[in-house]
Amino acid sequence: MTAFTYDALPGRVVFGPGVASTRLIAEVDAFGAQRILLIAGESETALARELCAPFADRVTATFSGIRPHVPLEVAESAREAAADADLVLCVGGGSTTGTAKAVALTTGLPIVAVPTTYAGSEVTPVWGLTQGSRKTTGTDPVVLPRTVVYDPDLTLTLPAALSVASGLNAMAHCVEAFWAPRRNPVSSAVAEDGIRHLAAGLPVIATDPEDGGARADLLLGAYLAGSAFAVAGSGLHHKICHVLGGAFDLPHAETHAIVLPYVLAFNAPNAPRAATRIAAALGQQDAVQGLHELGHKLGVPAGLRELGLGRSDVDAVLDDILALAPADNPSPVTANGLKALLVAAWSGTAPTGEDA
């Protein structure tokens, strides 16, 4: 056993079917909040207001102008809405949580998060803002939600296709935790268990979106994934997806779902122990093939070109990704290797480790 450092992150988690309806008021009361900024996208505003009904008089402002990758102008508008608030309550997916984090980053306000997807952002201290075509990310404990209320019932109406993409985005957090810069035995164990729950829930949800047990598996897997990612940090996969998402406004979850098996194929030859553990958690003999086949079975788009990315766009972001590539990535990141990875992910060809 090698020496390691593990930074356990503070935060309260309340998990269970129906807890958003029965426990949210107590979690809000714990902060003594009297002026709450509610952040929820337009599609979730009705749900958010229903959950807030027991303390509606304390919701003094609502912000619904959510956009993916949190453009700076959206962050500034949300911060203006928080002028008199003493708590931020966010109900929604990763972009909604990201907007709440943008508010906390400059105001220091505590966040109570109620996730409705499997983004995992609610348990990480990572924030992201996009200005123009460039996305900037950072880490600050002030943006880490103080309390997270996980209610599988809130995900029952999440469409199957979005559930799959969001679940595979969580899978990316788990896989990358095995070789991210601050990896350690604890975060790897958490990530491995997260993969097991996600692999169990995803195929079921694809055919029966209202299966409560599978929804609970996915939500627990997403929590474990976010927890592992929060401690281990961001590796090559996330650097690629953040640059692509910020530059071309690609859908966050779908981009991660498509790129993941290609980064795994790139790194697996030089991270055999990690690949073995990932394969075992997936219930497969080979991690790369197993993950690629899972995505294909679940209907993940075959390549980034199906999201509207042009072939020339790959060349346009190579230098930006190279500048961010971690120095300790299992496979050295070269211009030729990275280009081969991106072209394969763009075209949707079967992932291999030949270019690592």
Rank of each mutant, 00 (worst) to 15 (best):
D7M: 08
A8F: 15
P10N: 06
R12H: 05
V14W: 01
F15W: 11
F15A: 04
G16T: 05
G16V: 05
S21H: 14
R23V: 03
I25F: 04
V28C: 11
L37F: 06
E50H: 13
E50K: 13
L51G: 00
C52S: 13
V59H: 07
T60Y: 00
T62K: 10
F63V: 12
F63L: 13
S64Q: 09
P68Q: 06
S77T: 13
R79K: 12
L87M: 06
L89P: 07
T96Y: 00
T96M: 00
T96A: 08
T97W: 05
K101C: 09
L105Q: 02
T106V: 12
T107L: 10
G108A: 02
P110Y: 04
V114M: 02
T116L: 09
G120I: 02
E122C: 08
V123I: 14
V123M: 08
P125F: 00
W127Y: 13
G138H: 10
V143T: 05
P145Q: 04
V148E: 06
V148N: 06
Y150A: 06
Y150I: 04
P152V: 02
L158M: 15
P159C: 06
L162H: 14
C174V: 10
V175D: 01
V175T: 12
W179G: 03
A180V: 11
P181F: 01
N184R: 04
V186M: 13
V186Y: 11
A189I: 10
G194T: 06
G194A: 07
A199M: 09
A199Q: 02
A199N: 06
A200E: 12
L202K: 07
L202Y: 08
A206T: 04
E210Q: 13
G212S: 14
G221K: 03
Y223N: 06
G226T: 10
H238S: 10
H238I: 11
K239A: 03
G246F: 08
G246V: 07
F248G: 06
I258N: 03
I258F: 04
I258K: 08
I258C: 09
L264Y: 05
A268K: 06
N270S: 09
P272I: 11
T276M: 12
R277H: 06
R277T: 09
I278N: 00
I278A: 00
A280E: 15
A280M: 11
G283M: 01
Q284V: 08
D286A: 02
H292K: 05
H296M: 15
L298W: 00
P301G: 03
G303I: 10
E306C: 03
L309V: 01
R311M: 12
D313G: 09
V314P: 05
V314Q: 03
V314K: 03
L322Q: 10
A323S: 12
L324C: 14
P326H: 03
D328G: 07
S331V: 11
T334Y: 05
A335C: 08
L338S: 07
L338I: 10
A340G: 14
L341S: 02
L342M: 11
V343A: 02
V343N: 02
A344F: 05
A345N: 12
S347T: 15
A350W: 12
P351H: 09
P351M: 10
G353I: 10
A356C: 15
A356Y: 04
A356E: 11
